[in-house]
Computed example of a mutant assay.
Amino acid sequence: MERIVVGVSGASGVPYARRLLEELARYETVETHLVISAGAREVMRREGYDPVELERLAGFVYDPADMGASLASGSFRTGGMVIAPASATTVGKLAAGIADNLLLRAAYVHLKERRPLVVLLRETPLPLPTLRALTALAEAGAVIMPASPGFYNRPSGIEDLLDFMIQRILDHLGLEAGGPRWEAE
């Protein structure tokens, strides 16, 4: 069983996390581990989302304050981690090596253990401190993925836009993903 960690931080964009968890649930060989930060819970509340609905999609759910959880250790092997959505604050803290909650600690572990870490940034515009933090994370081995879906697949709705990004995330986790691909004419 391959473990995939999903972290949800305090940026707008929880539908990305929902679609990711739905897609990961389709793989019989994937076990999902979810951490929702306190900031994410606040954003979800304000945007009308219920964290419990997201938690139901995951195999395992962790308290972001539980720094003794298995996710906090490099000996807890995983196939990768995705932070979706990733806030600028999460990006900045992680780039600075600050791991003051379980989501950040789990991401830090993925960097130090050289495991896949996909950071789905949901922030715009990007000021210089965030750009520098993103560069530092890329240099440390993270895949930086702005929540910026393509349109060549001719999306007919929001779900198609979400699916475009989820397909890209799954690609970086080494999981076979369906959906339209770019084809030269």
Rank of each mutant, 00 (worst) to 15 (best):
L175G: 00
A136S: 12
M1L: 09
R3M: 04
G13E: 09
S148Q: 01
M44V: 06
D100C: 15
S37D: 04
I144R: 03
L102Q: 02
I83W: 07
M1V: 09
A58S: 05
K112L: 13
N101H: 04
E185L: 08
G80K: 02
G68S: 12
A96Q: 15
K93F: 10
E42Y: 10
R56Q: 11
P149R: 02
E123C: 06
D171R: 01
G79M: 04
V43E: 08
R45C: 04
A140L: 12
Q167P: 03
A136N: 03
P129L: 06
G48E: 11
H33L: 06
Y108F: 10
A17D: 01
T130R: 11
Y152K: 02
R115F: 13
I4F: 01
S148M: 14
Q167L: 03
A133R: 09
A177E: 07
P180Y: 07
Y49N: 08
R18H: 11
M145P: 05
A84G: 13
H110V: 06
R115N: 12
S70N: 02
S73R: 12
L34F: 13
A65Y: 01
R18M: 11
E47M: 13
L20A: 06
G74H: 12
A96G: 11
H110M: 11
D66E: 08
Y108C: 05
M67G: 03
L104S: 06
I4R: 00
V30G: 01
E42S: 13
P180M: 12
R122N: 11
R122F: 11
A38C: 13
M44I: 02
A65C: 06
V30R: 00
Y62P: 05
A40N: 09
P180I: 06
G141M: 01
L34G: 14
S70T: 08
G79H: 02
E31V: 10
I158N: 05
V8H: 03
I4M: 07
V14N: 06
G10Y: 08
P155I: 04
G150S: 02
R19G: 02
P64F: 07
R122G: 10
V91D: 15
M165C: 09
V5T: 12
G59M: 10
L170Y: 10
D163E: 15
A38D: 15
A106L: 06
H110P: 02
A88Y: 09
S9W: 04
E123A: 11
R132S: 03
T78V: 14
I158R: 13
E159L: 08
G68L: 13
G179Q: 05
D171L: 00
E185D: 09
R154V: 14
R26W: 07
D50M: 03
V118R: 00
V30K: 00
R105W: 13
E42H: 14
F60W: 08
L173M: 04
L71W: 11
E42N: 09
E42Q: 13
L120D: 00
I158W: 13
A96S: 12
P180D: 08
L128D: 13
Y49C: 07
